[in-house]
Design a binder for these strands. Sequence first.
DNA 1: CTGAAAGCGCTAACAG
DNA 2: CTGTTAGCGCTTTCAG
Lengths: 333, 333
Amino acid sequence: MNISEFAKIAGVSKSAVSRYFNDGYLSEEKRKQIEDAIQKTGYSPSISAQNIRTRVTKLVGVILPKLSSESCARVTEGISQVLTEDGYELLLVNTANNYHKEIEYLDLFRKNRVDGVIFIASIFTKQHRTILNKMRIPVVIVGQSYQGFNCVCHDDRGAAYALTKRMIARGGKIPGYIGVTLEDKAAGEERYQGFLTALAEAGLSLDKRFSAISEFTTESGYRQAKRILSDKTHPDFVFCATDTIAAGVMLYCRENKIRIPQDVMISAIGDSKLGKITAIPITSAHLHYKTSGIEAARMLLSAIHNHDSVPRILQLDYEIIERASTMLEEAKI
Amino acid sequence: MNISEFAKIAGVSKSAVSRYFNDGYLSEEKRKQIEDAIQKTGYSPSISAQNIRTRVTKLVGVILPKLSSESCARVTEGISQVLTEDGYELLLVNTANNYHKEIEYLDLFRKNRVDGVIFIASIFTKQHRTILNKMRIPVVIVGQSYQGFNCVCHDDRGAAYALTKRMIARGGKIPGYIGVTLEDKAAGEERYQGFLTALAEAGLSLDKRFSAISEFTTESGYRQAKRILSDKTHPDFVFCATDTIAAGVMLYCRENKIRIPQDVMISAIGDSKLGKITAIPITSAHLHYKTSGIEAARMLLSAIHNHDSVPRILQLDYEIIERASTMLEEAKI
DNA sequence: CTGAAAGCGCTAACAG
DNA sequence: CTGTTAGCGCTTTCAG
């Protein structure tokens, strides 16, 4: 059923039908006729045909590294909530941590089909920058902060700093670190710097044997814990870049009768469901992932509507949630 | 840049360009010219314009109740994997457990825009059935089994039965049950029936005081655990419909010094990350969520390509993974 | 193998 | 307020 056929059934012209679905510049009478005809036929205009005329798809592309990661899912939930309210739908692509795919999809979205893109980034290469600069549609980057682009990010450095400081205040003397690749500017580099700054302020230094790089999984966290905790002399506090990693560390400690927090304190970033239900709940920094999705969607919408808007970076605050994994010297804080 | 303009630059006709991107019925010479012009201009055809002519969108709609649920995310990951390989993209809508929205989106997809729909279902009403029957595009339902529709589902009943039986074999005498709404045929009704069947076979009966309905959250699991475990005489084994609920039960037990598995055994369905890192790891049934996403996507693709295909129901097997939460009488099994 | 021409279903001037 | 008309960018006959 197309508009001409439908117009005939409704007894009005094509334009009247088009107006009904758009401006609404229409007499009550025709409006009624059209409504009745819709009841009968179930007609609704073809979105593709509308797209081609109006150049608006009401579609937003979302590129993310891993759907089954809790943080990504939370961000996406926020995005979805805002976009849906505004009549947008989201076109989701999952790159499975393959950043060549990110470039490929960015390119695909550049060509067509979507009105804007939200990019949940991890690693950011020159290629990313190049292609992002070529985009003609608005893009918002979530989770990383890159000058010259619209970004919604977290205070990764601040959160890592605060968490580390807390453990030092609780009496931590020998630091340990399990992070992620420094190629990830936010979760790798920034958190590492925050950690180091807190150490420096306290006059502590990081023994290389007690520093490790993990994947974003519990299994990998477990393996790295083994590396830095198996010696008799081991760190008495460990900062983990993510809750998922920390969960692996907890597992290793339990198996090896390393007491938490007495033998080693642990804290991490993310405040995931995981961290609340481990044997010893994990002290964590809550990063407001869902809020970042909401804000990113709003930022994108405003960029779509104000074509000229200037790139801006929005940094969200964090919240420290102290749990048993660092509650060593109750009195001291 | 449109096809006419581009054709001029390439020095060929519109049709030649169209052929280049489609059948490829073209001389090497023109092919080269077009390739060069693409290098120069970055031209690529408008997807919307193609849609309107070919009636193919290369888009699949995915409707799910909650993105941040681990099982949904896993299913979606499987879907995404298969669809992407075939050049499809997915249009994701998150209904936030609001089933009126499900109907609304089903209706939206019915009109246009997508070539097929995958529906991760929870509750299934008459309205669902009505609208599903009206769909002109193929639909695959995931997680529930409804005669007359394409479904990929799990053996919820079998998994619940096996888990319960295992706990009885381990010496369980007083059963407890924490499930979800029976409106959810798969996770509610089927799992409940499986549980009851195992009880019946063992000549056990369920005391109503020890039966509870929970939401799909850890917090709610905790609250229901309180209801059925706070008496001096309480169940010595509890079946939970989901790992998330079981995690709440574990939390309650830890706080109240109820030992697992000595005082109460716990098992659940889902084999989520959560269940592996609780203080006492949870015995669980692995339901192959990602596989169900993969199979659903394949089923949809085949329905899209064979317009006449007959509805089919695919039931995936489960796998019992026994962990410490039910390891009561080591010798007995 | 190739180009001209006729639409796909819709919107947006334009003239009433 | 309304209908007519000319495209939007593409694919697909149809003659060559």
